[in-house]
Amino acid sequence: MNTFLLKSLLTGLFLVGCLSLSLAQPVVSNIRTDYTADRMKITYDVQKLTEQDSVYLQIASRTKGLLKIRTVTGDVGRNLSSGTNKVIYWDFALDGFTMGDEAIQPIVGVKEAPRKQTIGRGPLSALASIAVPGLGNMLVHRKVGYRPLITVAYGGLLVYGFLERQKANEQYDRYMSEPYERDATPYYDAANQHRKRYMNAFRGAGLILAADVIYSVIKGVQNDRLRRTASQRITVQYFGNTPILAYHLTF
């Protein structure tokens, strides 16, 4: 059962990562075409587009491959916004083509502008987590987000642990002050219960601290590696309605 849950968790995290990746990329959909005697009208929808991204049109022929087209107007190029019913016109007659029986496929794609990548600090940020758990995590990511909850959880467990230890000491003192074992036993049992609670609380706080420090070191090393080596990313581009993974390498 534990193995199944672990696999399910990892699969879920992978799917969430893929979903967040796809949600960040421009999406072209719902491509339609219409013809006149000398012009093709291509209508499409696009989402997640920035003004720096560039929309382009390609025409694929079943026998000739990609055609060399020149006379293209409408919603192409940069400085476009997301929306529906975007229109591109291709004057195929001016480019020397005729629309015969040959099957052709319009391809509307988006060339993404480089997204600014924020790289957090290095592994020494883990020292900040030793002082304040969660702080190193903020530094390696350069964002706050949910990370103050780490500090709250760590501090809450410590406070709870100290309170339970105080109660354990009080119950043990009462146990020692009782002259008869029969009357003293309940205090001894209560002291043991409080002791178990504060020990578990301190262990939990220690695990939170250790996990935060280790993660901050690992993430910090990755950040340093990103600064020293090439920047790599995978994006999702759309050719027509078909998603294509694109690998980018920038030195």
Rank of each mutant, 00 (worst) to 15 (best):
L6A: 10
L6N: 11
S8L: 15
L9Y: 13
G12V: 08
G17K: 05
V27C: 09
V28W: 00
I31D: 01
T33N: 02
A37Y: 06
A37G: 07
A37T: 07
K41Y: 12
K41F: 11
I42N: 00
I42P: 01
D53C: 01
K64Y: 06
R70Y: 08
T71N: 10
N79E: 13
S81C: 07
S81Q: 14
T84I: 07
T84D: 10
V87Y: 04
D101Y: 07
E102Y: 07
P106S: 01
P114V: 11
L124W: 06
A128R: 02
I130V: 14
A131L: 15
V132E: 09
G134Q: 13
L135P: 02
L135F: 15
V140D: 09
G145L: 07
P148A: 15
P148E: 09
L149P: 02
Y154T: 03
N169C: 01
S177H: 08
E178Q: 15
R197A: 15
Y198E: 08
N200G: 06
G206R: 04
I208Q: 04
Y215Q: 12
G220W: 01
D224Q: 11
R227D: 07
A230G: 12
V236I: 15
N241R: 05
N241Q: 08
P243F: 15
I244S: 05
L249Q: 08
